[in-house]
Amino acid sequence: MEMIQGVQIDLISAERLDRLTAMEKIRLILDDVMEGNIVILEKGLAPDEQSKLIEITMREIAPDGFSGIEMETYPIRDAGNGFLAKLLGGKRSETRLTVIGPANQLKTLKKEKDLISAWVSSSR
């Protein structure tokens, strides 16, 4: 697990996301990512939420500080049996797994991406 040394990954379940308003979701994600953490959403954001996420990300960018986000989505096929699904309580979801991280840690996120892909594909 050398790859993930020093990086905190926070998983947010679909259930929790469902209970939040658009702004609460965006705040939760950005506050976490701005601390240097990587956030995994069990359920993807709606297009309007994505649009607002971009807008608010832009407002938070500061010289020599936060420089924005990197975001990837992954389709979930067998979410019901996967490691991640078990971790999140085995709730099945058709929506896409979304990984969001700080843009200046792109390299880390790329590595994490492989790891996350591995988690997703190991479910088959």
Binding site: M58, I61, P63, G68, N104
Partner: peptide, 24 residues
């Protein structure tokens, strides 16, 4: 885009002050 870093502008030979302004 989802990210903007003023250093992108510095790579094009733009002074720091101007680069920060452009990024904002």
């Amino acid at each position: 885009t989802t990210k903007i870093d003023y250093n992108e502008f510095i790579e094009f030979g733009i002074e720091k002050e101007e680069a920060v302004k452009r990024a904002r």
